[in-house]
Design a protein around this nucleic acid. Structure first.
Length: 580
RNA sequence: GCACCUAUGGUGAAAUGGAUAUCACAACGGUCUUCGGAACCGUCGUUUCAGGUUCGAGUCCUGAUAGGUGCACCA
């Protein structure tokens, strides 16, 4: 519809003023009372006509809008009810009820395909997120990263791309050597049968190791020896233990990430990227990198005063984080040849990646041109309910448990899995509602509400709609059912007046498109809130199951709503519970 | 010190240079539910400051103020 309107306007501009190059938009109006689509074309064109070099001085937007609207009314396509002018010179289009009924039918028929775009059809997109620090427990920062990364992954899938998901566990560092030192000393590793508890032991060893290293210099020699053996992959008690811990951590990571709704096609470990990165950096010295004080560094050009010099290989000969990222870039592009390679980290790493990508661009242009760094804010905690371990940062397990308990207070009979689905929705929603990049101050006592703007509010609306559909005497109307034979053809009551719900429904694909263009899930969140609200309002004033109604339109509309909400929530990585 | 990011009702947020700045929470008042009240309807209240660009600025530019983050061998 957007394209139809754009073409119509272009034809009008050409016919009336001979303008062919105007840049204008056709969009969903902020307020749907103003029409179903709106355009700012007159405001834009006014400027152009006012320009002395192009002719007359008739730059009054309102008059232009009137002339154009008259033209459009004359030549409008059959779906358009009317074209009018409002405000400073906006052109508003109102569509006929037949058009909305047609869309409702389309939504029901297309099911999970409704809203899909073809922006990146057939293109390969690689998404990296959730990269854990093995040996450190999965904390609230990881949750934020995972939530945003997963949503971007799903947007990418929705864009028609062939998506590969990847994560980059940090498995090796001096810190890890410190932890291994403690574990070797304590011999506690094999004792625990519970996975979570074992992982907790490793986390504690990490903290303890850092402490011992700082307090007791006599440990340094041994810890350095352990680090060398780990970096070198040299067979030794520490190496065996390291391998075992790594395995344990990865299975724990997979377990928790699966619960959150993510799956990873590929793992590239930091230890692996370090070897590759060191090699690349050495080969590109002195062309790209420079020897300095025993280390190999990258010095940006004069023109890049905003980025810093960084060490890529330290004077010990070990690759730093920077070189590991160079290695990661090489591995990503060699293995997956992506059209776009998205990676998600927090804001603290912005300047780090500016340096890395600036250097990468000189090694292989593709590495920087096709990489996209999505960076999000940090999640901090107020609130009293959360126990915080690990230096004040709450762990995902604890947070999730706390929220599940909250859900159960509200509904004690609920199944564990439904409670978990709702708790995860509440958490993910509170992360995705804000634009990516903003810090979130998460206060579970306040900001994690189950009322109003919240994940459970969205879930509730669709659960209720599904419940109505199931109670209908007609069969097979739900999302999960494969046949909706009683809803097609959609029969509309002659006296039906277009509702806000229908007006909101038709814009879903445009919103999805915008989220893909900007890799910004929060547009979907905002839209789904509008959608749920208009359904709830409509629901409150309408009897859907109505024996006196010969048409099936109200059921069809309910099904179309449920489908759209379902598809939208999927993009956010939120599932719909059976009951709530 | 240098660089980057942020500033919107009491609180948390939204807004593609466009229409009367949109939601929710909180507060106050209402719906009295049999298709699910985790709902619906209403009241209250907002763009840090000073300039500038523009027909039009929360949005762009300059400066100030406040906060956050990063700056050589950690990740």
């Amino acid at each position: 519809m957007k394209e139809i309107l754009e073409d119509l306007i272009k034809a009008g501009l050409k016919e009336l003023w001979g303008i062919v190059d105007a840049i204008f938009v056709v969009e969903e109006p902020k307020d749907l009372d103003n029409g179903d689509y709106a355009s700012n074309v007159a405001l834009v064109v006014a400027k152009q006509l006012d320009n002395p070099s192009t002719g007359s001085g008739l730059g009054n937007p309102k008059e232009i809008a009137e002339s154009l609207a008259a033209y459009l009314n004359k030549y409008k396509s059959e779906e358009i009810e009317s074209v009018s002018v409002a405000g400073a010179g906006f052109i508003n289009f109102t569509l006929k009820q037949e058009y909305f009924a047609e869309k409702v039918k389309e939504i029901i028929e297309r099911k999970d395909e409704w809203g899909k775009s073809d922006t990146f059809a057939g293109k390969k997109i690689l998404v990296e997120h959730s990269s854990p620090n093995l040996f450190k427990p999965f904390h609230i920062g990881h949750l934020m990263n995972n939530t945003i990364g997963e949503s971007i992954t799903r947007l990418a899938q929705c864009s028609g791309a062939i998506v590969t998901t990847m994560t980059f566990p940090s498995d090796i560092s001096l810190g890890v050597a410190k932890a291994i030192f403690i574990l070797l000393e304590e011999h506690t590793t094999s004792a625990r049968s519970d996975l979570a508890e074992s992982v907790e032991d490793l986390g504690n060893a990490y903290v303890e190791g850092t402490k011992r290293y700082d307090e007791d210099e006599s440990t340094h020699a041994r810890i350095k020896e352990i680090a060398d053996n780990l970096y070198g992959g040299i067979d030794s008690p520490e190496w065996k233990l390291f391998e075992m811990c790594k395995k344990l951590n990865i299975s724990y990571f997979e377990h928790i990430v699966l619960k959150l709704g993510s799956h990873f096609d590929a793992y590239i470990y930091e230890s692996e990227a370090g070897v590759v990165g060191k090699d690349v950096v050495q080969k590109e010295t002195p062309r790209v990198f420079t020897q300095s004080e025993g280390a190999i560094v990258y010095i940006p050009d004069e023109s890049r005063k905003d980025i810093n010099t960084a060490v890529f290989i330290n004077s010990q000969g070990n690759p730093t984080y920077e070189a590991k990222d160079i290695g990661l870039l090489k591995l990503k592009f060699d293995r997956y040849t992506p059209h776009t390679s998205i990676f998600v980290t927090d804001n603290q790493q912005v300047s780090h990646f500016e340096v890395v990508l600036d250097a990468a661009q000189k090694i292989n242009r593709e590495w920087s041109d096709k990489s996209l760094h999505v960076h999000h804010g940090r999640m901090s905690f107020k609130g009293q309910k959360m126990s915080s371990r690990l230096g004040g940062v709450p762990l995902v397990d604890d947070v999730l448990e706390t929220v599940i308990q909250e859900v159960k207070i509200k509904n004690p009979d609920m199944s564990v899995s439904d409670a978990e689905v709702i708790a995860i929705a509440a958490l993910k929603f509170s992360i995705l509602r804000a634009s990516v990049g903003k810090d979130i101050n998460f206060d579970p006592d306040l900001s994690l509400s189950f009322d109003g703007d919240s994940g459970p509010y969205l879930q509730y609306s669709v659960v209720r709609a599904q419940s109505v559909l199931q109670k209908s005497p007609r069969q097979g109307l739900g999302i999960s059912s494969s046949v909706r034979k009683d809803l097609t053809p959609v029969v509309v009551d002659n006296n039906w007046e277009t509702t806000t719900l229908e007006k909101v429904l038709i814009h879903f694909p445009e919103i999805v498109q915008r989220s893909i263009n900007e890799w910004a899930p929060h547009y979907v969140v905002g839209y789904l809130l509008d959608l749920a609200q208009s359904f709830n309002s409509w629901y409150a004033t309408t009897k859907i199951l109505d024996d006196t109604d010969a048409s099936n339109y109200k059921l069809a509309l309910t099904a179309a709503f449920a489908q759209t909400m379902h598809n939208g929530l999927h993009l956010l990585g939120i599932e719909v519970p059976e009951k709530m």
